[in-house]
Design a protein around this nucleic acid. Structure first.
Lengths: 348, 348
DNA sequence: ATTAGCACTCATCTTGTTCGAGTGCTAACT
DNA sequence: AGTTAGCACTCGAACAAGATGAGTGCTAAT
């Protein structure tokens, strides 16, 4: 059954009010709150209908109504017009950050500060290819493998070899490694290639094994979803999430982060294709123990095609308007930053 | 006034019991709990004395007694004998970790898991000297400076130069840099050295400037106190820290970490010279808003003389015995690991 | 279709009461 | 002189019983 215009207006008013106050909202409040000029009695009738339809519910007899998940869903999909005045994210904070890691940390932090919810940002997931490998002798026992992958993400791998290599041998290795591995993604490095390389390494085959292990580890690590979080403690600010045992489980997830990482991974690709933004309400979230929370995710794209995810976790009665418009704004801004970075990279 | 033997025994029994239960303990409990074979009435008299002396207090009339900060202090200093059976830290978890960063993260994690308190570990504070510098051309516009400092801490610095350098020039730079900078600490790099190097760099003087900036940044960053935390949410497990607003402030500190870092820095050097362990009770902690918590710190030493700090934050009624003996054990184990690492370094 | 009016519900607040753990004091005991 | 039994007292916690009031559903009048 479709809701008529009036029911929509009333539902919207109820939810808007509830988002503000967190208190169940009664018919009298709505009667004054809207420009419908209806008496509380009429509102009551409509509210009874809305309850029957599953959009709102009474926490107990003779209390006001609060939205159900279905109600929130309808609000997010149909009723919520986004804020016109865009939430200005302090761009100054986002400028002048040259390293990806710091940038993403900043994003999480600024976002948490602006919204007062818990935030997380995943690093862009490259189909990473090796850009450059450099082996060097750090001291008598250790080689250092520096692996640079696309996007200028640098990983170091200390390889204990226990022998001192001659300079020319290291040079050979470097040439060997870069000849074969430059531009290769993990899939490209197959048994055949490995065998060929071993043959060419001759007596140092054993060391080559170690180097391989190091490189694989390093690329794996680089490929692993990195995730930055901020504002986890904001969760404690919302009394309706007062059940400490549940909330602390959630906080633990923010400490460990792997589960968050999986969660965001799962959401990837599910977003609204136009805006890249997706809202998960209560049980819709792909993680246990978040019935009382909502999750809003957004995807940002790098010029190379890599994508990362930004997530915001808050109480179900979060300010969806603000969050969605802030995220929209932010992704645009990020796109900008990356585009500029790209230009510098290829023009300078 | 000195406490006589009996008073000590009673005080110890009171605190031990309170540490277990978290409930105020009454005279009757003690009467049974100890082997003193005294009636509750006698205990009451003694308790009245102990209260007058400031070691225990009644949260309200007609409740049992709980320890004051002074009481805890006396317990930690005089009454607590450490557990004989050492708390076995899962050493297996600590083995086979080659990179400092991961090792310290592990330590924090294992410790939090073993104690159920919040833990933090700072990286050893070196008087760092440069071990090795490697410049390489990553792509057309960027040089990568890899700086390895003592303790095999590796830092990367991407340096946009906008020109492609000839291979031989990079080689020259590398020789130049390593000749001058290997083994140098930040203090050693003075204006004179810089000028000399610039002269030798000739037409690439400008690039050298950039490289310098990068190197200084990198060393600075390496020198900065790094801190790893774990188990912050354990704090929520203790109901006596129930005041959410205060507790969440504490949790925020665990998110931001700078304040924790300063705190541990402040405690450095204050430790008991023999064991390296220091206990701060309630207001004794060098940070605001921790009246209801205690902090236990331990210092570990690296063979090179660098020291780091391990800290544990828990409620005032934390299991001091267990924490102290666990920490003692852990620092010994860490010393071992580092010594082994050192041996491998110099013998292999 | 809307609304005023009214009886009804039920969480919350307030107040009062009971209960019991634990105390301090006193007097008796060793 | 130290110890203990006994007892009156205190005060928080737990429970019960109104009082309050916001909010409802229903009905009858507009």
């Amino acid at each position: 059954m479709e809701l008529d215009e009036r029911k929509k207006k009333i539902l919207k008013a109820i939810i808007a009010n509830y988002l503000e106050t967190g208190e169940p909202v009664g018919s009298r409040t709505i009667s004054k709150y809207t420009d419908l000029n209806l008496s509380s009695a009429t509102i009551r009738n409509e509210m009874a209908d809305l309850e029957e339809l599953g959009y709102i519910i009474q926490p107990h007899t003779s209390a006001g109504r609060i939205p159900t998940d279905k109600g929130y869903r309808f609000y997010v999909d149909n009723l919520m017009e986004e804020k016109e005045e865009v939430e200005e994210v302090k761009s100054s904070l986002l400028e002048r950050v040259d390293r990806m890691e710091l940038l993403l940390k900043q994003v999480a932090k600024v976002l948490a500060y602006n919204t007062n919810y818990a935030t997380m940002v995943t690093a862009p997931k490259y189909n990473k290819t090796v850009k450059f490998i450099q082996l060097s002798q750090v001291d008598i026992d250790n080689l250092l493998a520096v692996i640079v992958v696309e996007g200028n993400i640098v990983k170091n791998q200390l390889i204990p070899v226990g022998v001192e290599l001659a300079n020319e041998d290291i040079l050979k290795f470097n040439i060997l490694l870069n000849t074969f591995l430059q531009g290769a993604s993990l899939e490209d490095i197959n048994i055949e290639m490995i065998q060929t390389m071993k043959t060419q390494a001759g007596e140092y085959e054993g060391i080559l094994d170690q180097i391989f292990k190091g490189i694989v580890d390093a690329i794996h690590e680089a490929k692993e979803l990195e995730i930055y979080t901020s504002g986890a403690t904001n969760i404690l600010k919302y009394p309706e999430l007062g059940d400490i045992s549940k909330t602390s489980e959630l906080l633990e997830k923010f400490e460990d982060k792997t589960e968050l990482s999986h969660m965001l991974e799962e959401t990837a690709g599910r977003e609204d294709s136009e805006t890249g933004i997706q809202v998960y309400i209560g049980d819709e979230t792909p993680v246990q123990n978040m019935q009382d929370c909502s999750l809003v995710t957004a995807t940002y794209k790098m010029p190379e095609g890599a994508t990362g995810t930004i997530g915001i976790i808050g109480p179900k009665r979060m300010d969806y308007k603000k969050v969605v418009s802030t995220l929209k704004n932010l992704t645009v801004e990020l796109d900008d930053i990356f585009k500029k970075g790209k230009e510098v990279n290829s023009d300078g």
